[in-house]
Design a protein around this nucleic acid. Structure first.
Lengths: 135, 135
DNA sequence: CCGGATCCGTACCGATACTG
DNA sequence: CAGTATCGGTACGGATCCGG
C-alpha cells in the first residue's frame, strides 16, 4: 500500500518549504481575474459602482459586485452608501489597499520589462513542441 | 488528442485603463495555484522532479508537470534531461526566472505585513454579514 | 524516476432577468 | 444607479492508471 509515496493526507496544507507562507493568501485575492484591475482604478481616486464597471470594460455586474465585496471584506477598500436618489455608492482604497498598489506597480514593472522576452520564449517553445497542448 | 485551444471563447479585452497593461499576463502565469511555490523552491537551487514534488506537498504529478512545462515555455525555468537510468531531470531558474523571485519576495513581505490585519478585517466583516456567502 | 493519458468533480465566471 | 438571484458552460485541478 502506497509504497514510497508520502502520505496523501486530506489536509490542504501547502505548508511552503520555508520561503512562502502567506503568498498563497495574497494570490488567492489579487490573483483572480478582476481584483487587480479594480485596485488599479481605485488607485486613481474614489469611484462609484458604475464608474468602476466602465473603467474595467470586460467585467460583469455580478463579478464587479463579488470583487468589491471581497476586497471590502479584506479591508482593502471601503464602501460608502449615500442616502440619495438615485442611489450612490462610493468605493475607495483603504491605507492597506493603497499599500497594495506598490506591489501592483512592481508587478507592472516586471511585466513590462519581461513581456517581450516571455512572448519570444513562448514562440520558440511552441515551434519546438507543436502538439503539446500546453498553454 | 490535444484539444489545442479552439477559438470558441474569450478575447481578454481588459484593455486596462492606463496603469495596467500586462499585469494580467503575469498573474495568469504566477497567479495559478502552484507556479509561485515551484519558483520559490527553485530559487534555492537546482531540483529534480521528485524533489520538487516533495518540496510542494499538496501538488500532484500532473500539476507539477503542467506547471514546470508552462514555466519552461515562458523561459522562467530550464529543463535538463540526463541520459541515465533511472532517468534524471533537473530544473533550474533562468535569469528571467530569478528576477521573478524578487517580485515573489515583495509579495511575501507584503503578505507577512498585512496578513493579520486582513484576517482581522475578515472576522469583523463575517460577523457583520452572517449569511452573505462571500469568501 | 519522469512523466503522459484519461476520467471526473467543482469552482469560476458570463449572461440574463429581476428588485429597491 | 446599485445591486441580487439563477442558470449553465468551461476550464482547472485531483486521482488513477499506464508507459519509457
Amino acid at each position: 500500500m502506497s509504497v514510497g509515496h508520502t502520505a496523501v493526507t486530506t489536509e490542504p496544507v501547502v505548508s511552503c518549504g520555508g520561503e512562502d507562507c502567506g503568498i498563497r493568501e495574497v494570490l488567492d485575492r489579487i490573483g483572480d481575474k478582476w481584483s487587480v484591475l479594480v485596485v488599479v482604478e481605485l488607485a486613481q481616486g474614489v469611484r462609484r459602482f458604475r464608474e468602476l464597471q466602465r473603467a474595467v470594460p470586460g467585467i460583469s455586474q455580478r463579478m464587479l459586485t463579488l470583487t468589491v465585496r471581497r476586497l471590502e471584506r479584506d479591508g482593502l477598500i471601503s464602501r460608502t452608501v449615500h442616502a440619495v436618489v438615485p442611489p450612490q455608492v462610493d468605493y475607495e482604497l483603504t491605507p492597506t489597499g493603497h499599500s497594495l498598489t506598490h506591489l501592483v506597480r512592481a508587478l507592472a514593472d516586471w511585466s513590462a520589462e519581461h513581456r517581450d522576452g516571455i512572448a519570444e520564449s513562448r514562440r520558440r517553445w511552441d515551434a519546438a513542441h507543436p502538439d503539446s497542448g500546453i498553454h
